[in-house]
Each structure stands twice: as structure tokens, then as C-alpha cells.
Design a protein around this nucleic acid. Structure first.
Ligand code: NAD
Ligand code: NAD
Lengths: 205, 205
DNA sequence: TTTTAATCGTTCATAATTTCACGATTGATA
DNA sequence: TATCAATCGTGAAATTATGAACGATTAAAA
């Protein structure tokens, strides 16, 4: 099957979550129209996204919630659990560590790193905080897939370098700074400030 | 001038930040090529984005850092300071409240709201925490522009309704749930889980 | 059994975005 | 001064994403 565009992947992940919620409410059938109302995306787009996988819907009826969920998950996640390594256990990092949402979902935080001696050795929410020097060792041991940057922007390039050195090839960066990494490494950012300003400007004009 | 697409706005905000950093390093001239290296965006795209505003670059030289910054800011932000109201002072909300980045930038947190009696009345980082019932009054008083949802997903629809009732027409939602709002209200989401899974899936295939 | 209405999946058209190509301009240099 | 190389700005081409149209299918109703 052809590689899906990133935008499609993002939407499909949203469908999976929505289907999960529907199943919890014992709604075992759902149409693209209903999914459209819940997610705010157009029904055509939803059907088109789903049609990337297989013919699973029935005209006049819709989709079986659990079948559709299984199909989508099967293609996208294949029963994998994503292992995260967090760098920087400050205000934001602590919030991420305490977040129970990740454990319910297909994400597991396997280790945290910091340079602050007072934090090292502690365990938050079952996740131990290590000194950054041990990152290469620990990341290999726990098979971390994705590194999260939650250190001040002044340190985020060095942390990114360290992540690459430790064998991570995917990075999610919360710092307001564009890090440079080798081509094979993928970086995405979550930038609160730009999100907020962009919402302001967009609506404003 | 024509309304800019959201993607362009987001990039331009990134240019503004980059130009700020360059100016701090006393680099008062910069080319689209250099901006490209710093931001990771293509130089053509950068020039095209900038050309939305006015002819401000000089061939063979580049852009004057401060002039360009002023021009971009002038169009996008016009000396406005964005006023935020935070709903939910839990793990994530507290991190946001403590974030000093907002104060340096053009963003100001003016008030926080919670239902937890133990939190109400406290002040974090100069921002007072009010009971949600006072939102309509406080939001008007401080002219809040954007509401931030940082409450558990089970409560986020009711909080969104309350925001609209209080006169907010822009919402940034951190909860993994698509809220319904009147058409005139804009909602954007920051969804950690989907960002992480999407990074995993995208690189994975 | 035939008709009807809902819904899927797909094709085709439209719109938005990015990339390419290149002329125009400018400061530096021979 | 004439040439050169760097860089801007932009129209056209290519790519990507979205939306509209519609035939095909199905369950339910007549
Ligand atoms: N707090 C927020 O709400 C918020 C909002 C937007 C962006 N951010 C960004 O997220 C990042 C973290 O923010 P924060 O508020 O948690 O900061 P913070 O100062 O509270 O925490 C930073 C943590 O990183 C650790 N650290 C510093 N250098 C390190 C290194 N080289 N290796 C490992 N750990 C290191 C520090 O010891 C500290 O524990 C910053 O880049 C910030 O700009 C935060
Ligand atoms: N913590 C994270 O790193 C993280 C990551 C991803 C997403 N999120 C999302 O962000 C939101 C907040 O997460 P959190 O970890 O801070 O949760 P939390 O449980 O720590 O805090 C929630 C806060 O909201 C308050 N609250 C509850 N109902 C309210 C209401 N109706 N009005 C006002 N306040 C109310 C609670 O009193 C509490 O202070 C959740 O939706 C969560 O899914 C958090």
C-alpha cells in the first residue's frame, strides 16, 4: 500500500480515537456523516481516508465501529507501543510525566533525563529520572522510539545532538527553537507561542 | 492586503522570532538563504512569504533584520498584546502559568479559572486563579482574547460552552476531544498524543 | 417483489500550496 | 567603467489537498 501523507495519518489517528470512544458508548455502527459531525471533518474526506485501507463500509449502514478501528490501527500502528524518552523534567516535563493519557493509549514513557542532581534518581508516575550521560545506554535498553525535548531553548540543540548520538531518530521538540539534525532524523515541534499568536492573527484579519 | 493563509501566518511568526534572535546576536543583515538554514524552510518559500508585505529586500544583500521584523510584526500583530485566559490549573495548566516565555513575547496570561476550591484564590506567577463562575466578568474586565482549555476531556465541552458564554471567540484546546462551538468561534487543538503517534507512524512506513 | 432512501467508494474538477525557472537588481571586483 | 556573482521578486508549472458529483450497493418500506 502506498505511503500516506502526514495529514491523512493525523486524521486517521483521530478516527481511531473517536471509534474507541464510540465503542465505549456501545455504539457499534457509525457512518461517515456521524464521524463528520463528531470530528468536524467533511464526510467525503473521511470516506476517502478510510478507502486507503479496504472496503469495509456498507452502503446504507456505515462502518462497524470495532472493525474499522481494528483495520485502521492494524495498518498504522500494528500493535506497536511507542516508547518515549523525555529530556528535561521541569514544569512542562513534569506535566508530561504525570499525564495518565499516555498509558491508556499506545504510548509509554520509558525514561526521563535531566541535569539537575536534585531530580535525578526520583521516580514520577513510575518513570525514573536519569542523568543525561546515561541516555545512550538507557535508550537502547528500553528501545525508546521518540525523544521529547522539554529543556530550555538554550540547551535544546545540545540535547538534540545527544538524542541522535543515543540512537533516536525521531524527536518532538517543545522548545521554541529549530534544531539541526542529520537528514535521517525527523523533528516535529509543538510550539505553544506560535500556535497562540497564529490563532490570534488569523482570526484577527 | 489580502488575507494570508494560516500556514503562511505560522511561518511568518517563525521568521519574526528568528529575526529577533538574530538581532540579539547583532546580525543586522540576513538573506533568505540564511533564514532557510536556520528555520529549515526553503528560501523561495521564505521570499514568497515576505513578498506578501512589501519590497524590502535588496538583491545581493538580503534583508535588514530589524526592518524586516518591524514590517512583519506591523502587519501581523500591530503592537497588540494577546490576552490569555486559562481554564484548568492542573499539571499542564500550572506549567503554562509558570512559563516565562509568554511574558517576554507578545502574550500575557491575564487570568486562570478552576473548580478546585483549594486552588481558587491562589496566585501563580502573578496570575490569579478564579472560580469558573466568575469567568464572564473577569474575561470582560481583562479583555481576554483567547481561552485555553486545560481541563480533563470529560469537562472540556462544558468549559468551551462557558468560554463562548463569556464572550471568547478563540479557543486553544489541549484536551483530546473535538468541542462543538458556534461557527464564529475558532478552535485549534494541540494534541500531544496525536502528534506523537503521527511522528511514529509517518517515519515508520 | 419493487421501490426508496441512505450511504459507500470513486472519478473528476477545483483550489491551495510548493517548487521551479529566470529576469532584475545590486554591490563588489577587475 | 564593465563584468561578475549573489540575491531578490515573481510568473508559470507541478504537486497536493479538498470538494462536488454520481453510480453502486444495501436495508427497509411499500
Ligand atoms: N512550561 C510551558 O508551559 C511551556 C510552554 C511552551 C514552551 N515550553 C518550552 O518547553 C521547554 C521546557 O519548559 P519548562 O517550563 O518545563 O522549563 P523548566 O525550566 O521548568 O525545565 C527545564 C528542565 O530542563 C532541565 N535541563 C536543562 N538543561 C538540560 C540538559 N542539557 N539536559 C537535560 N535536562 C536539562 C532542567 O534541569 C529543568 O528540569 C522550554 O524550552 C520551554 O520554552 C514550555
Ligand atoms: N499533562 C499533560 O502533559 C497533558 C498532555 C496531553 C494532553 N493533556 C490534556 O490537557 C488537559 C489537562 O491535563 P492535566 O494533566 O493538566 O490534568 P489535571 O487533572 O492535572 O488538571 C485538570 C484541572 O482542571 C480542573 N478542572 C476540572 N474541571 C474543570 C472545570 N469544569 N472548569 C475549570 N477547571 C476544571 C481541575 O480542578 C484540575 O485543576 C487534559 O484534557 C489532558 O488530556 C495533558
Amino acid at each position: 500500500m502506498k505511503k500516506l501523507p502526514r495529514k491523512t495519518i493525523t486524521r486517521v489517528l483521530l478516527y481511531i480515537r473517536t471509534l474507541e470512544a464510540l465503542a465505549k458508548e456501545k455504539r457499534f455502527l457509525v457512518s461517515s456523516k456521524q464521524l463528520s459531525e463528531i470530528t468536524g471533518l467533511s464526510d467525503v474526506k473521511i470516506r476517502k481516508d478510510i478507502s486507503n485501507f479496504k472496503k469495509i463500509g456498507k452502503p446504507r449502514v456505515g462502518y462497524k465501529t470495532l472493525d474499522l478501528k481494528r483495520t485502521l490501527e492494524n495498518y498504522l500502528l500494528q500493535n506497536n507501543v511507542v516508547h518515549l524518552a523525555l529530556f528535561g523534567v521541569g514544569n512542562l516535563g513534569s506535566a508530561i510525566l504525570s499525564y495518565p493519557g499516555f498509558h491508556q493509549n499506545k504510548i509509554k514513557l520509558v525514561a526521563a533525563f535531566d541535569i539537575d542532581r536534585r531530580k535525578i534518581g526520583k521516580t514520577i508516575n513510575g518513570v525514573k529520572i536519569y542523568p543525561v550521560e546515561r541516555a545512550p545506554e538507557i535508550i537502547k535498553k528500553y528501545h525508546a522510539d521518540i525523544g521529547i525535548i522539554a529543556v530550555p531553548k538554550e540547551h535544546c540543540q545540545e540535547v538534540a545532538d545527544y538524542m541522535v548520538l543515543s540512537g533516536l531518530s525521531r524527536i518532538l521538540n517543545f522548545a521554541p527553537y529549530s534544531v539541526s539534525v542529520p537528514a535521517k532524523v525527523q523533528v516535529r515541534s509543538i510550539d505553544f507561542t506560535i500556535k497562540i499568536l497564529s490563532l490570534f492573527c488569523d482570526a484577527h484579519k
